[in-house]
């Protein structure tokens, strides 16, 4: 049951993030095109909106990156260690991940409060509240903690399951 809810939530976040990114792709292309075709449609806020959309879209998939332990690490040495030590190290990494996410959530929320207190807005003529953008920080932090938390629960339930490190291709892009 819990597993199904987690999977549903992860899929929902994936789709939401992907939709935001899709909108950003269309917007940034539209911007580039209209500048030549019809300058009167060009605006000064496109860049700002594209940034917000893309940072938010990446933030929404954060939980999955934590749960699937896709964050890159230097595993060369630890992979040589005995299983018990590797398990202990993995436990430490999960707890550290939860703690970091919590710190990011708490202080990110402070950044949001700071932006609300001053009513700061973006530089473009849309004057979007910066608080909308900064909310990405506590969101990222919370999702990271949740992702690592779910992974921790699974690890505690079944410590014998595959540890990360044996599949270093995960989490790679360049």
């Amino acid at each position: 049951m819990m597993g199904r809810i987690a999977r549903l939530a992860a899929t929902g976040l994936d789709l939401a993030g992907a939709l935001l990114a899709l909108v950003a792709i269309f917007l940034v292309t539209w911007e580039a095109g209209t500048r030549y075709v019809a300058a009167r449609y060009s605006n000064d806020w496109g860049t700002e909106v594209v940034i917000y959309l893309l940072v938010w879209s990446a933030a929404l998939v954060t939980a999955r990156t934590a749960f699937e332990t896709r964050h890159v690490s230097a595993n060369v040495l630890i992979d040589l260690a005995p299983l018990r030590i590797r398990q202990a190290a993995f436990l430490v990494a999960l707890v550290a991940g939860i703690a970091f996410g919590a710190l990011l959530a708490v202080y990110g929320a402070e950044v949001v409060r700071f932006a609300i207190r001053f009513g700061t807005t973006g530089d473009s003529s849309l004057r979007l509240p910066m608080a909308w953008y900064y909310s990405v920080l506590p969101t990222m932090g919370a999702l990271l903690s949740i992702g690592y938390g779910v992974r921790l629960a699974r690890f505690v339930a079944d410590p014998a399951a595959r540890l990360p490190g044996q599949t270093p291709i995960e989490g790679e892009v360049a």
């Binding site: 060009s42 000064d44 496109g46 473009s124 004057r127």
Partner: peptide
């Protein structure tokens, strides 16, 4: 090109220019 700021954008609009960020 405007470095940002709604005031600059509006000023250029009144002057008939196209402000781009």
């Amino acid at each position: 090109r405007v470095p940002g700021g709604a005031a600059s954008v509006e000023r250029f609009r009144v002057m008939g220019a196209n402000p781009v960020s």
